[in-house]
Protein backbone atom coordinates (compact mmCIF):
# COMPACT_ATOMS: atom_id res chain seq x y z
CA UNK A 1 0.00 0.00 0.00
CA UNK A 2 1.35 3.43 -0.98
CA UNK A 3 1.36 5.80 1.99
CA UNK A 4 1.14 8.77 -0.33
CA UNK A 5 -1.59 8.89 -3.01
CA UNK A 6 -0.64 11.54 -5.56
CA UNK A 7 -3.35 13.39 -7.50
CA UNK A 8 -2.02 15.89 -10.02
CA UNK A 9 -4.85 18.19 -11.18
CA UNK A 10 -2.76 21.04 -12.56
CA UNK A 11 -4.10 20.59 -16.10
CA UNK A 12 -7.75 20.03 -15.23
CA UNK A 13 -10.51 22.61 -15.37
CA UNK A 14 -13.13 23.07 -12.64
CA UNK A 15 -14.87 21.07 -11.30
CA UNK A 16 -12.76 18.02 -12.31
CA UNK A 17 -10.13 18.48 -9.55
CA UNK A 18 -12.90 18.64 -6.95
CA UNK A 19 -14.66 15.55 -8.30
CA UNK A 20 -11.45 13.50 -8.52
CA UNK A 21 -10.35 14.51 -5.01
CA UNK A 22 -13.69 13.43 -3.52
CA UNK A 23 -13.43 10.11 -5.35
CA UNK A 24 -9.90 9.49 -4.04
CA UNK A 25 -10.88 10.51 -0.49
CA UNK A 26 -13.63 7.89 -0.45
CA UNK A 27 -11.01 5.23 -1.21
CA UNK A 28 -8.40 6.54 1.25
CA UNK A 29 -7.21 3.86 3.68
CA UNK A 30 -5.80 4.07 7.22
CA UNK A 31 -2.24 5.45 7.19
CA UNK A 32 -2.62 6.99 3.73
CA UNK A 33 -2.28 10.67 2.79
CA UNK A 34 -3.84 12.14 -0.35
CA UNK A 35 -1.40 14.58 -1.93
CA UNK A 36 -3.22 16.83 -4.39
CA UNK A 37 -1.15 19.07 -6.67
CA UNK A 38 -3.07 21.99 -8.09
CA UNK A 39 -2.49 25.44 -9.59
CA UNK A 40 -4.83 27.17 -7.12
CA UNK A 41 -6.21 26.66 -3.63
CA UNK A 42 -9.36 24.48 -3.96
CA UNK A 43 -11.75 26.45 -1.75
CA UNK A 44 -14.80 24.45 -2.78
CA UNK A 45 -13.06 21.28 -1.63
CA UNK A 46 -11.96 22.79 1.70
CA UNK A 47 -15.59 23.47 2.53
CA UNK A 48 -16.49 19.79 2.09
CA UNK A 49 -13.60 18.28 4.05
CA UNK A 50 -14.84 18.78 7.67
CA UNK A 51 -18.12 17.08 6.75
CA UNK A 52 -16.14 14.10 5.47
CA UNK A 53 -13.94 13.94 8.59
CA UNK A 54 -10.82 14.89 6.65
CA UNK A 55 -7.96 17.01 7.98
CA UNK A 56 -5.92 19.10 5.56
CA UNK A 57 -2.80 21.18 5.21
CA UNK A 58 -1.89 23.33 2.22
CA UNK A 59 1.37 24.89 1.22
CA UNK A 60 2.63 26.61 -1.86
CA UNK A 61 5.95 25.53 -3.32
CA UNK A 62 8.53 27.89 -4.73
CA UNK A 63 7.14 27.08 -8.19
CA UNK A 64 3.80 28.56 -7.06
CA UNK A 65 2.13 25.16 -7.15
CA UNK A 66 -0.28 24.28 -4.36
CA UNK A 67 0.29 21.05 -2.44
CA UNK A 68 -2.84 20.00 -0.57
CA UNK A 69 -2.37 17.12 1.87
CA UNK A 70 -5.49 15.37 3.17
CA UNK A 71 -5.91 12.54 5.69
CA UNK A 72 -8.59 11.13 7.98
CA UNK A 73 -8.93 13.23 11.15
CA UNK A 74 -8.56 10.26 13.53
CA UNK A 75 -5.60 8.75 11.67
CA UNK A 76 -2.49 9.69 13.72
CA UNK A 77 -0.15 7.62 11.54
CA UNK A 78 -1.22 9.54 8.44
CA UNK A 79 -0.94 12.82 10.32
CA UNK A 80 2.70 12.13 11.27
CA UNK A 81 3.48 11.10 7.69
CA UNK A 82 1.79 14.23 6.30
CA UNK A 83 4.04 16.35 8.57
CA UNK A 84 7.10 14.69 7.00
CA UNK A 85 5.72 15.44 3.53
CA UNK A 86 5.06 19.06 4.47
CA UNK A 87 8.70 19.46 5.54
CA UNK A 88 9.89 18.00 2.22
CA UNK A 89 7.49 19.82 -0.10
CA UNK A 90 7.16 23.28 1.23
CA UNK A 91 9.61 26.12 1.38
CA UNK A 92 9.15 27.28 5.01
CA UNK A 93 8.61 30.93 4.15
CA UNK A 94 5.80 30.18 1.70
CA UNK A 95 3.92 27.63 3.83
CA UNK A 96 0.46 28.61 5.01
Amino acid sequence: MNREVILDTCLLEPPEPFELALKELQQLQAGQVLHMIHRRAPQLLYEQLPQLGIATHTCQSAALVFHILMWKQVDTVAEVYSQQLINQLCVPSSCN
Binding site: R40, A41, L44, E47
Partner: peptide
Protein backbone atom coordinates in the same frame (compact mmCIF):
# COMPACT_ATOMS: atom_id res chain seq x y z
CA UNK B 1 -5.10 34.98 -9.23
CA UNK B 2 -6.33 32.30 -6.93
CA UNK B 3 -9.93 31.71 -6.00
CA UNK B 4 -10.72 32.64 -2.49
CA UNK B 5 -13.84 32.28 -0.43
CA UNK B 6 -15.50 30.04 -3.03
CA UNK B 7 -18.50 28.78 -1.15
CA UNK B 8 -21.33 26.35 -1.79
CA UNK B 9 -23.43 27.55 1.12
CA UNK B 10 -23.33 31.15 -0.07
Amino acid sequence: MQLSGLSLQQ
